[in-house]
Nucleic acid binder design. Structure first.
Lengths: 211, 211
DNA sequence: TCTGTTACTGACCCGTTGGTCAGCAAGGAA
DNA sequence: TTCCTTGCTGACCAACGGGTCAGTAACAGA
């Protein structure tokens, strides 16, 4: 009766499984998600999972990479927007970028890194090399450009660009934890944050000290 | 032969068990910690655990409460230091307070809330009521005092006092995740942060607008 | 020393879950 | 139609871990 019981689609499977896993990991966390749950949501059997991913941990790594890798290039390209001043860059592309993060699937990665990172050091190293240190370098270079062309004074922010993105991490986790108790207007909060940073960088140009 | 195989110390047990659990939860996370591990570290049998805590989740709640409750009163008292100006308060007790957090056991709570919160809503509500909203209110009142006595201009920080403590959450998680890759000088970073905040609050007193 | 009470033990139970594998069915080739 | 390859299934296994409980040892009172 040729009743198609399943389809043979080798190429599409890894992506579908990874997407299903990402959704469930975000919902319930890695440990509380059963491999069988992922299989069901992806519309395959549990056995098939192990033809594409050696272990559950392998699946986790794949989820993380699938989120990061497509974005690395975008991040790299944002570094160089030479026609903008440093301030324009911060008020424009930078603000736009961080505003998009809390509503993007990136929050899945943040939560997974925080919850599972300690038990998967090679994942942490991967994230560090490909996202964190890259992002921090970008910010440092941007601040240096502002100093070089006289827009900004030299500032401790060059040593601690972390302060520029701390509110993003905060907002992602805060909303996910306390969203039921307080709805954060992250758009306005980030705009205020960028405003504070810029005015701190521009303030009092007469003592444009070098140290 | 009267060989003492164990001791009967009903009063001391809960505290010892909670302390052992806190240490292990911080090390390995809640899900990855076995009740038997906690029992061994506390020097008791697994069975005894269930005489003092009905379930593993009860034990988690007890750990969280044991960290928070002794600190609530201290937090409350910091609200009122009337002999200091708002700026002096921020540069003094406030900075001192947040500087102490990354090296204190509080980071255990932060990690546990982030990792386990989503699956324990009543724990989140408890933390919200007793820590978060209390702390935010305190900061708002402090800023208002600064505005009232002319030190500060009115600012969007009154709506987003979250920005004042975002770097703390960031530093705690960042150090715990990436400590091996970068050692953050949180003392200096926080000092810089407070400096930026205060100068933002004091800047340009002529347009001391009310909105 | 006997007895009752209770803090405590540790072997056991059993549902859960990561991982396996024998076999089946969907194509392609001839 | 037949045969081969291979994507795929789902019943199964073994280990793990939360939770139980029958029994034991520590004290107290008499």
């Amino acid at each position: 009766m040729a009743q198609r019981r399943f389809r043979r689609r080798k190429d599409a499977r890894p992506g579908e499984i990874t997407a299903a896993a990402a959704a469930l990991f975000a919902e319930k966390g890695y440990a509380a998600t059963r491999v069988d749950d992922v299989a069901r949501r992806a519309g395959v059997s549990k056995g098939l999972m192990y033809l594409y991913f050696r272990t559950k941990e392998e699946l986790l790594k794949s989820v993380i990479r699938s989120f990061i890798e497509p974005r690395i290039e975008a991040l790299r390209q944002r570094i160089e927007e030479p026609e903008l001043s440093a301030e324009e860059f911060l008020r424009g592309p930078f603000l736009q970028f961080i505003r998009a993060l809390p509503n993007s699937p990136v929050h899945v990665i943040v939560k997974l890194m925080v919850t599972e990172g300690p038990r998967h050091p090679e994942l942490v190293a991967y994230y560090w090399n490909n996202v964190v240190s890259l992002g921090l370098d970008t910010l440092r270079r941007l601040l240096q450009r502002g100093v070089d062309n006289g827009e900004f004074r030299s500032s401790a922010l060059q040593e601690f660009p972390h302060l520029m993105i701390a509110p993003v991490l905060f907002a992602v986790l805060y909303s996910s934890l306390f969203g039921k108790h307080e709805k954060l207007d992250t758009d306005r909060m980030f705009a205020e944050h960028v405003g504070i940073l810029i005015e701190s960088l521009k303030r009092d140009p007469r003592r444009g000290d070098t140290g």
